[in-house]
């Protein structure tokens, strides 16, 4: 009987500890984001990758709660695999714990820094670092280290102090330079030997500007 009581006490303790390990501010943000049932928006996409030249593109996105964001476009568009999730669905969809990392300065303003560590093996990221604006209860930046696709950083800007969804975001990611066999290269294509020899991944950025057409809470 004593052993049973001890085991119960142990599991209760674990549950209690886990509950303690989720930051209150992040829970507030999660609850706020949960109020969004769906939204749609027109998106302007600007790609900034050293070896890719692409004009500004336009697309339409649709989000419904607990579903992946869908993208529609009549043009050819490069849609970032990561970072398009302005509802932060991917960060919060699985159980997690948080670790306080103090504060970080952005634009001369301190923001609360937290690590989000998933407790579920199904999650596609191992750790995320978020910067929280505690005055507006919003995430202004997060960095995600994925298990398969490297890491990416999302910087989120908002129009208004009350807005839940960002007006524009900047997604930074690592990308390897394109390697094309000579027979597929144009005759005028020059090869920068130093760049070509380099195996270092490059950093790419994509800027997304949202014009929300419908937000349902």
């Amino acid at each position: 009987m004593t052993i049973r009581l001890l085991i119960c006490f142990y599991f209760y303790g674990i549950c209690f500890l886990n509950a303690q390990n989720i930051d209150k501010d992040i829970l507030k943000i999660q609850q706020r984001m949960d109020t969004i049932e769906s939204f749609s928006a027109h998106v302007k996409l600007e790609v900034d990758i050293s070896f890719v030249n692409i004009p500004v593109k336009h697309a339409r996105i649709e989000y419904a709660k607990n579903e992946e964001t869908k993208v529609f476009s009549e043009d050819f568009v490069l849609v970032p695999k990561k970072g398009l999730d302005v509802s932060l669905y991917h960060l919060f969809k699985n159980p997690f714990i948080t670790v306080d990392r103090g504060s970080e300065i952005r634009n001369n303003k301190p923001y609360k820094a937290l690590n989000i560590i998933p407790t579920n093996k199904k999650t596609d990221f191992s750790i995320a670092t978020v910067l929280i604006d505690t005055s507006t209860n919003r995430i202004i930046e997060y960095e995600v280290n994925t298990k398969k696709d490297g890491s990416y950083v999302v910087v989120m800007n908002y129009n208004d102090g009350k807005d839940l969804l960002p007006s524009d975001i900047e997604v930074q990611f690592e990308i390897e330079r394109v390697r094309i066999p000579l027979k597929y290269m144009g005759k005028d294509a020059q090869i920068d030997k130093d760049t070509y020899k380099s195996d270092e991944p490059k950093t790419g950025k994509i800027y997304l500007y949202f014009n929300y057409t419908k937000i349902i809470y």
């Binding site: 890719v52 697309a59 993208v71 529609f72 476009s73 009549e74 043009d75 050819f76 568009v77 490069l78 849609v79 970032p80 695999k81 990561k82 696709d149 490297g150 990611f173 990308i175 390897e176 330079r177 394109v178 390697r179 094309i180 066999p181 597929y184 790419g204």
Partner: peptide, 20 residues
């Protein structure tokens, strides 16, 4: 097949919408 090879690196970071 050629397009897939040319865009291989970009595929790690992007989905493609549209037909090239």
């Amino acid at each position: 097949g050629i397009l897939d090879m040319v865009l291989d690196n970009l595929k790690q970071s992007f989905h493609f919408e549209g037909n090239l």
